[in-house]
Each structure stands twice: as structure tokens, then as C-alpha cells.
């Protein structure tokens, strides 16, 4: 008796739900369907600190900073077409401004951080403006250069504590403020960015990525819009930097370290380019992983590159896009 062959059949869920538009509000089941994965992730993230000890809470804070950088990177790369490798510059600018305000003027961190966020973003944007004429890889190279420049200038002039840095800066009031401040920052930035890319301004930025000549022919100054986009990404990054300074109560040239430029990119690739949330999830996985592998010393970099390679080869879409796709499909076995 011949065995009946079976094959897997995949069906997409109704378009109504997948468009995520107003139509989804037509029934509770569709609203739940869309809200559930979001709520699980957000609630999961918010309740996470209760299950962690002091040390791992710190790791979560660091992951949040990388998450912010990943958001900025994904936004600039996928929605504006600017591959910005200058994440470290954002961290450095925000961190130094906030730390110096605290050390020299004695301002409270809760005052320093907002000032440093805005001032750092203004400085970072001004520095990147001349490079905005460049496209693709050329912008990436130039933006990669700036953190290195900043380090050399600080070392050469022995400014702001030189190579030693400045320590004993004020910390945030307590552990809970620390951890929830960064989680709130990540969630709020994520929410606002996701909104922004579908607003008119976001559409213009995406159009610049697709075809900047046509945007010019439509009577829109692409430089103005690129400046706005960089400012937004810099705001997010500089907040991360200012926060980091007060998290460790220390500032120094390692704020301009390469890690801040590279790890967010790895996180974004893992999570899925262009998903925004993917980069945050990637950072939440990669940062603890690199902590857990601390015992391996330098060898963890190898393992970590290996994981990245696996993603690039086998899941180039990133895990968030993958799970999203699976969530929107029914799978069943049918006989043939």
C-alpha cells in the first residue's frame, strides 16, 4: 500500500490584518492579534529588571544604550540612505558634555542629561553636515573617522582629563531610576521613530533614499531633510552617551570607542534591517551574550563574529522579520 505523501502548506493571514491599518480596528480578535506580540515584548522588557540581580541590571542598561544606537543606525541607513558608522561620536559627544557639566558646574545628572542630549546632537549634526553631500560607502567612511578624530584631539590637547578621563561623577538617584530611564527612552524612541517613518517627513526621507534627484526635482531641499534626520539620530545617540556617563560615573576616551559604532550594526543585522525594533532586540541579545562570554577573553570576539556570519548567511532578513513572517502565516500539512 503506497504511503500518502504529505507536504507543508503555508497560507498568509488575511490582508486586513497584515496591512495594520484602520481596518484592523474592525474587530477585537484582529486588534488582539496585532497587539499581543507587541504587548508581550513590551511587558516582558518592562518586567525584566525584577528578575535580574544588580549586575545583570547593569548589563540590561548597557543593552539599552546599544539598542538606542541600533535604532539610530537603522533609521539613518534604511530610511534615509545614510550608513552612519559614527555611533561612537554620538555617545562621546553626549557623554562628555553631560560629564563636564556635572564635574565643573556641579549640575545634577537629571539636568545634565537633557542639556547634553540636545547640545551633543547639535554638535554631532554640525560635524556631519559637510559629509552629507556624500552617499553610500563614502559617507560611512567619513562618519567612521569623526570619533577617531575626537580621541586624538582630546589626547593631544590633554583636554577634559586627557587619557585618564574624569571619574567620580554623580550617579543617577538609584538603580530603579537607572534601569527604567533607559528602558523608557528605548521604548519612546522606538515608538516615535516608527510613527515618523510613515509621516510625510518620513516619506520624504525614504524618497531621498530611493532617489535624491527626483526629490530635488520635486522642489525639496534634500540637505535640509538629511540634517533633520541626522539630528534625530544624534539626539537618540547623545542621550545614550549622557546616560552612560552617569551610569558609570566616569568619562573618558573609551566613550568614543569602536564598540559603539560596530555593535549596533551587528545588532541591527541580527534583528533585521529596516524593522527598527529588530535592532533593539538584537542589542538585548548581543550585549548579554558578549557579557556571558567574558570568560573567553578575546576569543568571544571570534564567537561573536561567527554568530554574525551565521545570520548573514542563513537568515539575512534578521530574526524579527523571520518571526513576523511566521506569525502572519498558517502552516498545515496536506496530503498530495
Amino acid at each position: 500500500m503506497p504511503k500518502t505523501a504529505r507536504r507543508k502548506k503555508r497560507l498568509d493571514r488575511s490582508v486586513k490584518v497584515r496591512t495594520e491599518g484602520l481596518y484592523a480596528l474592525t474587530s477585537w480578535s484582529e486588534i488582539t492579534y496585532l497587539l499581543l506580540p507587541r504587548l508581550v515584548l513590551i511587558m516582558g522588557l518592562l518586567s525584566l529588571p525584577f528578575f535580574l540581580d544588580m549586575y545583570w541590571q547593569r548589563v540590561l542598561c548597557a543593552a539599552g544604550i546599544y539598542g538606542l544606537l541600533a535604532l539610530g543606525f537603522d533609521f539613518l541607513a534604511e530610511f534615509v540612505g545614510l550608513v552612519c558608522l559614527g555611533g561612537a561620536f554620538f555617545i562621546g559627544a553626549g557623554g562628555y558634555i553631560s560629564g563636564l557639566l556635572n564635574a565643573y558646574l556641579g549640575l545634577s545628572p537629571l539636568v545634565c542629561i537633557p542639556i547634553a542630549t540636545v547640545a551633543g546632537a547639535v554638535i554631532s549634526t554640525l560635524v556631519l553636515v559637510p559629509a552629507l553631500r556624500l552617499r553610500g560607502i563614502y559617507f560611512a567612511i567619513v562618519s567612521f573617522m569623526f570619533p577617531l578624530f575626537a580621541v586624538y584631539i582630546i589626547v593631544a590637547l590633554s583636554a577634559f582629563g586627557g587619557t585618564e578621563g574624569i571619574s567620580a561623577l554623580d550617579n543617577l538617584p538609584n538603580q530603579w531610576v537607572e534601569v527604567y530611564l533607559i528602558l523608557a527612552a528605548v521604548l519612546v524612541s522606538l515608538f516615535l521613530l516608527r510613527r515618523l517613518v510613515d509621516e510625510d517627513m518620513g516619506l520624504i526621507l525614504r524618497a531621498i533614499k530611493d532617489n535624491d534627484q527626483a526629490v530635488k526635482a520635486s522642489g525639496i531641499s534634500i540637505t535640509t531633510y538629511k540634517i533633520r534626520a541626522v539630528f534625530i539620530a544624534a539626539l537618540i545617540g547623545c542621550f545614550g552617551g549622557a546616560y552612560l556617563t552617569h551610569l558609570y560615573g566616569w568619562l573618558g576616551i573609551s566613550l568614543f570607542g569602536m564598540d559603539f559604532s560596530i555593535l549596533p550594526i551587528a545588532a541591527t543585522v541580527m534583528g533585521g534591517m529596516g524593522t527598527l525594533a529588530g535592532g533593539v532586540l538584537g542589542a538585548l541579545l548581543l550585549t548579554p551574550l558578549s557579557e556571558a562570554l567574558r570568560g573567553f577573553g578575546q576569543l568571544r570576539v571570534v564567537l561573536y563574529c561567527f554568530i554574525l556570519l551565521l545570520f548573514i548567511v542563513y537568515k539575512p532578513e534578521g530574526f524579527l522579520s523571520y518571526f513576523q513572517r511566521k506569525y502572519h502565516q498558517f502552516e498545515l500539512w496536506e496530503e498530495v
Binding site: 510625510d200 516619506l203 520624504i204 525614504r206 524618497a207 533614499k209 530611493d210 532617489n211 534627484q213 527626483a214 526629490v215 526635482a217 520635486s218 522642489g219 525639496i220
Partner: peptide, 21 residues
């Protein structure tokens, strides 16, 4: 030079946001 990733009508949002319009 259309904006390939946007729906057709969203292509017009760009000129409709110009200072002239």
C-alpha cells in the same frame, strides 16, 4: 525615477510637501 519602495500615491506626497505647494 519613481520611489520604488513607496506606494504610487505616496510618491506624490513628496512634491505636495514642497514649499511651493
Amino acid at each position: 525615477r519613481p520611489y520604488y519602495s513607496l506606494p504610487a500615491f505616496k510618491n506624490l506626497i513628496i512634491p505636495l510637501n514642497s514649499p511651493r505647494v
